[in-house]
């Protein structure tokens, strides 16, 4: 019995052990490589965009209107148009998002129906943006008979709702239970608790959610392609029809649609301008995102 060659076992052990250790180290290395190369790749893309943008940006971008390729043009109207459109879209999308966020966090019980609503909101957030554009085109452009800023605002508002709803819900749920209990214990009604205790406590988070939604739609091009289209005209004009001081009832300039038009034009001068505009767009989006992260971090740390 004792003559069993121990060495065979140990050699086998050694082989398997060594194989396991080798695989282990190989997989570890691959994981590290994956993460590092992802970050490097994404940053090289980001760096390239910023570099191209910096070498093509010029003051005329902010002060002039689009011009033919042989003149110095700018994107003044597009930048203003994007800001106006975001404001219009926010006016449509944020209230709905806020209300449904409040419903989900404050009133919804753990029922199948409310899981369903949550699911619907998540699904809504991931509807391809081009289809939102198709929807707005069918819903607004076709009945009106022409392109308008309203159609673009409907599309952007549609995309903002679910984002605002989910972040609002999450932020309201972060508000400590003790605050609610204290308010109810002092005789506060549901409305008073909500308006005077919970919403102020969650306000930073809710604003964060709104900024996140704005950052998300600010870079959207697809929903604007056949709703606002693109325009070389200034946004604000004296000739605009009475109640508005903007040209909202015709094609409307936006930064993203304008960049798309220039980027695919094949004209070197226009492509260079597109890079400049892209830098403006990206700094807008990333600054908003940065602000969001910092605020969320603060909000979490306080609690």
């Amino acid at each position: 019995m004792t003559t069993l060659p121990l060495s065979t076992f140990s050699r086998q052990e050694n082989f398997h052990g060594r194989l396991a250790r080798f695989t282990n180290r190989a997989v570890m290395t691959l994981c590290c490589l994956a993460a590092i190369s992802t970050i490097l790749l994404l940053f090289s893309i980001f760096g390239y965009i910023v570099w191209q943008g910096l070498s093509n940006i010029h003051w005329s971008l902010f002060t002039r209107l689009p011009a033919p390729t042989d003149e110095v043009g700018g994107m003044r109207n597009s930048i203003a148009g994007t800001l106006v459109l975001i404001a219009l879209g926010s006016a449509l999308g944020i209230p709905v998002g806020l209300l449904s966020g409040i419903y989900l966090a404050e009133y919804a019980r753990e029922s199948l129906l409310n899981h369903g609503i949550r699911l619907v909101i998540d699904v809504l957030a991931s509807v391809p943006s081009i289809l939102v554009g198709v929807l707005a085109s069918q819903l607004v452009v076709v009945p009106m008979g022409h392109n308008s800023a309203w159609a673009g605002a409907v599309a952007l508002g549609f995309m903002m709702c679910p984002i605002v709803a989910r972040t609002t819900e999450e932020m309201l749920k972060l508000v400590p239970r003790s605050l609610r209990e204290a308010s109810i214990g002092l005789g506060g009604s549901k409305f008073q608790t909500l308006a005077k205790v919970i919403l102020p406590a969650a306000s930073a988070g809710i604003i964060t959610g709104i900024m996140l939604a704005v950052a998300r739609v600010a870079g959207e091009t697809a929903p604007l392609l056949f709703t606002t289209m693109d325009s070389d005209q200034p946004v604000f004009s004296h000739s605009a029809s009475f109640p508005y001081f903007m040209e909202v009832n015709s094609t409307f300039p936006t930064l993203t649609a304008h960049i798309f038009k220039y980027a695919t034009s094949g004209e070197p001068a226009w492509i260079n301008e597109a890079w400049g505009g892209m830098l403006v767009l990206i700094s807008m989006v990333l600054l908003l995102n940065l602000a969001v992260r910092v605020t969320i971090h603060r909000a979490r740390r306080i609690r």
Binding site: T38, I45, Y48, I49, R216, G219, T221, W275, L290, R293
Partner: peptide
């Protein structure tokens, strides 16, 4: 790293197209 990766998810689609 999470922060960086999430930040990069925010780059607009059209920027990737131009790149």
């Amino acid at each position: 790293a999470s922060f960086l990766i999430e930040l990069l998810a925010a780059i607009p689609s059209i920027a990737y197209g131009l790149w």
